[in-house]
Amino acid sequence: MTAVTVRRATVDDARGIAEVHVTAWREAYAGHMPAEFLASLDVDRRAAGWAGILERGETDAFVAERDGTIVGWATAGSGRDDDAPRDRELEGIYLLASAYGSGAGQLLLDAAIGDAPAYLWVMDGNGRAEAFYRRNGFTRDGATMTHPAGDATVLAVRLTR
């Protein structure tokens, strides 16, 4: 298997990021989010959104590639919460299931936040993701929030290090 590489994302990566975004959500959140909601995710709409985000430089964005194809992405910034417990937030990190165990997640985390103090939100009950973050020094700090997912809501918990 070819090694995974990580680099800073460009506007030209918007479509690949969107494809991973939609596929990774469907893979990771099946059984945790309504199937109708996951089926409604639209790559074209996400690609347009990602193009805007990347053009405006709203966040630090990185992609993981294998054989020239994007298999994951991560974003980080100064924190979107008014009560942010740290100066840096890991806003998102997603991998295709086919990239699990490849080291891509660690490479993305390292590129996005390194070993700096940071915080992130993770879906409560997403044991795989939470175990990964715990291995990287993150622990729950007690904060929670809910996100809409179609007609349902999803509970997210905050982790900090």
Rank of each mutant, 00 (worst) to 15 (best):
E65F: 08
L96C: 10
V154M: 13
A76M: 08
I17T: 06
L95T: 00
T75Y: 00
R88I: 15
W50A: 05
G125D: 13
I70V: 15
G142K: 12
L107V: 02
Y94W: 06
G79V: 07
F37K: 06
D67Q: 13
A3C: 04
D60Q: 10
A111H: 09
T2P: 10
M123R: 08
D13L: 11
S102D: 07
F138I: 07
P34A: 01
H32A: 11
G103S: 14
F138G: 02
T153M: 11
L155K: 12
D83H: 13
G114S: 11
S78C: 10
R7M: 11
A9W: 03
E36M: 02
E89R: 03
Y100N: 10
A9I: 13
L41K: 03
R8H: 09
E27N: 11
V20E: 09
G103Y: 14
A24F: 04
L107K: 15
V22E: 01
D67S: 15
T139W: 02
D115F: 00
V122M: 01
V63W: 00
G16V: 07
A118E: 09
M145K: 15
F37S: 01
A152N: 08
G101Y: 10
A30V: 14
D83V: 07
I93P: 00
G68E: 09
D42W: 07
R161Q: 10
I17W: 02
G114W: 07
E130I: 05
I113S: 07
Y100M: 13
T146A: 03
R86K: 13
A97T: 12
M145H: 06
D151R: 10
F62W: 14
A156R: 05
A18M: 09
R7I: 14
D115Q: 14
V71C: 09
G114Q: 13
L54Q: 01
N136W: 02
F62K: 03
E19C: 04
R45P: 03
T10C: 12
